[in-house]
Design a protein around this nucleic acid. Structure first.
Length: 821
DNA sequence: ATATACACGGATCCCCTATTTCC
DNA sequence: GGAAATAGGGGATCCGTGTA
């Protein structure tokens, strides 16, 4: 029976039938039904031919290749045909054979058999079937299509696939047409979270599982029974796992979301299901989650997109956040203004005595609720990035932005008739990783001082615009001289970039233009959240382009392009600085793409005129923007030496809005006391232009420190454990504390924030690490340490700008107070 | 394996020299 | 008096965390 449906693709999978690959795409219809679209495309790769082969030679080669077939344990794979094409590879014209094979999985094996001297390179073997399918059939994720085809209903086609997948409609696609109107789509999301009595995967038991969706709240437990309406009591761990699967099926979500669920919840569930000898059959085809190998485990559920929200936030979203950690609690606080519930479950309380289970259940549910609300909030961003990149949601939500950038390039090569470069081999990666660092950004050493009337300017998407303007990429780069080209240096050797536009600079130029348009449209219609998300998504991709070309894992790795981007950026910012100076502005500071000048007796208008002139002379699409005018700004000296410190300054604008960069205030490895004190002092000085109140405030803080009036929580120092304990060559205080925690039986893992405070010691020579205690260990905080190693270093340089010596103040007071004892 | 370089600053490490301790 | 242990200074290195 032929039918027509409106369809939005959400999850992509593929299967083999009679030795051939088929795509199986799960999505929704415009009536909210779950649909499965079966479709196919031919698998192929390219053989790039050596130059100067004549037609006869190529024909002969074609015949030899077409005769190849291989048989492995599973199936016989054949080469269907080999077509001659004119293509481009890295911008150069090449003659190629497009080699079609019966099964994508056997491409490497077949390519291995093709070892003829006429062939220079084989490419696109590493384009997976789903990516190939999306490119060929243009069925892009999260767009609406009209699909025409045969409905499969208890059909024997494809081995009866329609009855093995739990969907409302299964259709064998014949015609796919992109709809020109956007139908409404809101994914059905279910969030989940588990609580266990051991942290190690599968070691302990799952105490409870919470689920949260629209009008759907549940906590499944086999522990103490509860009368709470959302709690369901069962007899065993086995039962709650089964029930979990059942509820997921019943709720029928497009997305199952967790927080760190790739690394914890899903593998834990899988491990416990195995232990209980039951199936964790979450997939629409009743399959169990599939976990990828390797360091960063991912858990895939067939037909339902499993999203680990933490991964997306870490890779893409974190740059919009202020949070110091990406814990569910902190991110929720910032984005939702909601927090986790306060509940301290002690996993060492093996008897499980005195546990307030009702509170525990509420806590568990709240975690799912927060996860649900978070993904609802940032769905629009995930959606826009996915639509732009065109890879499946499952992948995009987990990829780093560099990898997303690469996927964007691959999905857009067709318009340049380009064949994709291959992924680097391990030996390429090893070589690339060994390379020396290249010179990076220009940072001007500031002269310390408190400045009035500061003009701040910055280049918009500087590295991106440099790559486009100077055509920097692998395919446009040459070590041999090119006449009339862009010339830079890499390791003292000249590098040339042709002016014939390369596909990466062209693509990047397009994205920058698309972003400009989206931003402009948004500015005219600030209620349109989609435009904002789109503009942000483009920005993220633009910013990844520079790092991508210098990233050892990139297909289009080009260290010369990366280093040249830094080179041309330096050239241009130095030129812009000269222009400001020529017009009589005193330079205060500059870092990479930003310039701060002193207006002195000049007007803002005069500064803007200089800006206009600079922009007239900038190459290509480069552009310097006004960031803002500030009524005051402070730059300080380094702790060692009397030079101005780079990457450390604070500004205040006319509306008393303060911007602090680099100071201890914004660093999480300083205690709250120090950070707050410095923040206050900067605020006083910036607002008032003198040190009077700042000094009074500081004196009061010092007094409080000496009287031990500072609460412990303000004295806690937090440092992240970046690697496992054994790897440390130098044992800092946080390492000592981490070792202690491990001895106590607490979980200690790389990535954890270690908390401690510093106490007094009779031994004058005791190291800081020997005086560090865990926050819950009683002790007297070391007044001297907090004054001299925390407060003093944070405020000394600020007061020095105003010629006040703080060391004396701290010392004098100390002598006085010693007399008090 | 999971973008780049530049930069700050605390704490430790490590070497050197001076001083103290011990026989 | 001389060898060994210890103290202390200072630069190098490690480490974590920022800016861009």
């Amino acid at each position: 029976m032929t039918a027509k449906i409106n369809f939005i693709p959400i999850d992509y999978d593929y299967f083999d039938y009679e030795g051939k690959n088929y795509a199986k795409i799960i999505g929704r219809t415009d009536t909210g039904k779950r649909a499965c679209v079966i479709d196919t495309t031919e698998a192929y790769f390219w053989a790039i031919l050596k130059k100067n082969l004549n037609d006869k030679q190529i024909k002969k080669l074609q015949n030899r290749i077409e005769a190849i077939n291989i048989t492995n344990r599973v199936r016989t794979s054949k080469i269907l045909r080999a077509e001659v094409h004119e293509k481009k590879f890295l911008g150069r014209d090449v003659k190629v054979l497009k080699i079609f094979v019966t099964n994508s999985k056997d491409m490497y094996d077949i390519a291995h058999e093709i070892n003829f001297k006429e062939i220079e390179k084989k490419r696109e073997l590493d384009i997976n079937f789903i990516t190939r399918y999306i490119i060929e059939r243009k069925l892009n994720p999260l767009n609406w299509y009209e699909i025409t085809g045969d409905i499969l209903n208890n059909s024997t086609e494809f081995g009866g696939i329609d009855s093995s997948v739990d969907v409302d409609i299964c259709i064998n696609a014949d015609k796919i047409i992109l709809l020109n109107k956007d139908l409404k789509f809101k994914p059905k999301i279910l969030a989940y979270d588990i609580e266990t009595d051991e942290f190690e995967i599968g070691k302990g038991e799952i105490l409870m599982i919470s689920l949260y969706g629209e009008n759907f709240k549940k906590v499944l437990t086999w522990k103490k029974s509860s009368k709470k309406d959302f709690v369901e009591n069962y007899k065993s761990e086995e039962e709650i796992i089964s029930k979990f699967c059942e509820y997921v099926r019943k709720y029928n979500p497009d997305i199952l979301a967790g927080y760190f669920s790739d690394g914890f919840d899903l593998p834990y569930l899988r491990a416990r299901a195995e232990k209980n000898r039951i199936k964790l059959n979450l997939g629409l085809d009743n399959s169990q989650p599939i976990f990828s190998k390797g360091n960063l485990r991912t858990g895939k559920i067939r037909g339902i997109v499993h999203i680990d929200l933490l991964r997306f936030i870490r890779n893409a979203y974190s740059q919009y956040l202020q949070s110091e950690t990406l814990s569910l609690n902190e991110v929720s606080k910032e984005l939702l203004e909601e927090e986790k519930l306060d509940f301290d479950f002690d996993p060492f309380n093996t008897e499980k005595k005195d546990i307030d289970w009702d509170k525990f259940y509420e806590y568990n549910l709240k975690d799912s609720e927060l996860t649900y609300k978070l993904i609802e909030k940032i769905w629009i961003d995930i959606e826009e990035i996915t639509k732009i990149i065109k890879e499946p949601l499952f992948k995009v939500s987990r990829s780093t932005m560099a990898s997303n950038f690469e996927d964007y390039v691959i999905h857009n090569l067709e318009q340049f008739n380009e064949i994709a470069e291959k992924e680097p081999m391990p030996e390429d990666i090893a070589r690339r990783r060994e390379r020396k660092k290249y010179e990076g950004a220009f940072v001007l050493q500031p002269i310390p001082g408190l400045y009035e009337n500061v003009g701040f300017f910055d280049f918009s998407s500087m590295y991106g615009s440099v790559i486009v303007s100077y055509n920097l990429s692998l395919s446009t780069c040459s070590k041999d001289e090119i006449k009339n080209s862009y010339v830079s240096y890499y390791q003292d050797k000249k590098i040339y970039f042709t002016k014939t536009p390369g596909f990466i600079p062209l693509l990047l130029g397009n994205i920058i233009e698309l972003r400009r348009k989206a931003k402009e449209e948004y500015n005219q219609n600030q209620n349109n959240a989609i435009l904002k998300a789109r503009s942000n998504a483009f920005k993220l991709i633009i910013n990844a382009a520079y790092g991508y070309q210098g990233f050892f894992g990139a297909r289009y790795y080009c260290i010369e392009a990366a280093s040249s981007a830094a080179y041309f950026a330096r050239e241009n910012i130095k030129k812009a600085i000269k222009s400001f100076e020529k017009d009589g502005f005193t330079l205060i500071y500059s870092d990479t793409d930003s310039i701060a000048v002193k207006l002195d007796n000049k007007s803002e208008e005069q500064a803007l005129n200089t800006l206009k002139r600079i922009n007239k002379n900038l190459p290509g699409i480069m552009e310097l923007d006004l960031d803002g005018f500030f009524k005051r700004g402070i730059w300080v000296t380094k702790r060692t030496g009397e030079f101005g410190a780079k990457k450390k300054y604070a500004l205040i604008d006319e509306k008393n809005k303060i911007r602090i960069r680099g100071f201890e205030t914004v660093r999480r490895d300083w205690c709250v006391l120090t950070r707050n004190t410095q923040n206050k002092i900067l605020e006083f000085i910036l607002k008032e232009g003198n040190e009077k109140n700042a000094l009074a405030y500081l004196k009061d803080i010092i007094k409080k420190v000496k009287k031990r009036e500072i609460p412990l929580k303000e004295l806690i120092i937090k440092t992240q454990l970046k690697k496992s304990l054994e790897e440390y060559k130098s044992e800092g205080p946080h390492v000592t504390i981490a070792k202690k925690m491990k001895e106590m039986g607490l979980p200690v893992k790389a990535g954890m924030l270690i908390e401690y405070y510093i106490t007094e010691s009779k031994d004058k020579k005791a190291r800081v690490r020997d005086r560090a205690l865990l926050p819950n260990e009683p002790g007297n905080y070391d007044i001297d340490y907090y004054l001299k190693n925390q407060i003093l270093p944070a405020v000394e340089n600020i007061f020095e700008v105003l010629n006040v010596n703080i060391e004396e103040i701290i010392d004098n007071k100390k002598q006085k107070s010693l007399g008090d004892y």
